[in-house]
Nucleic acid binder design. Sequence first.
DNA 1: TGTTTATTTTGGTAATTTGCTAAATAGCGA
DNA 2: TCGCTATTTAGCAAATTACCAAAATAAACA
Lengths: 103, 103
Amino acid sequence: MNDVFKALADPTRRAILEMLREREMTAGDIADCFTLAKPTLSGHLAVLLAADLVHRERIGTTLVYHLKLSVLEEAWLRLASTMRLGKSDPSCSTDTAPASPSR
Amino acid sequence: MNDVFKALADPTRRAILEMLREREMTAGDIADCFTLAKPTLSGHLAVLLAADLVHRERIGTTLVYHLKLSVLEEAWLRLASTMRLGKSDPSCSTDTAPASPSR
DNA sequence: TGTTTATTTTGGTAATTTGCTAAATAGCGA
DNA sequence: TCGCTATTTAGCAAATTACCAAAATAAACA
């Protein structure tokens, strides 16, 4: 959930998702669409993979990536339902860092 | 657009949006819901404000924040339409950093 | 086995983000 | 004006992120 939003925070990664929306592409195909170095794109793909937004499959020497739209949709639905249809009072219960004076 | 996704990337900021979903709150109210220091929360609110996800209004000494759901919805719709209903071939046109060998 | 192609991993640097404390600003009431 | 409350801004350290070049890995093929 958090990983999905973090993955979406980068414009390069959103562009990758957009390209992947229709056709699946190899890592090389994707890299050719950007002026960034291949290792950089590989890193972005790793983030998308960790967020479960894409799936990858090896075909011979190439790795084919394809979009997992369902995960993206689900993340949005989670946010949307928390946002619009949430039950009741928002009086302090959603703290991300509960009382633990770590620092 | 980019600012919206960047704002959503942080769990604290998403929690703030959730709390703001129903009732508008003062900066102090919000800060009391977290274990983070007030200036830290103020920073998060500044990010949300820059992303246009919240609006703030001064009432006396206090600043009242309220959610701008429409902006959030619009951001999603933009993404969703690019994602699902996009027109045609994704063959290299979405590059975020177009051919400019700066570095 | 050795070479080529496709891709990732490693190692390093610069920029950005997140958090803090302390100081500054804004409005209100005495 | 002075002091009080509410909040932000400034300045700084630690953690994370984004990028690259060089090295490593994986599969295919001669």
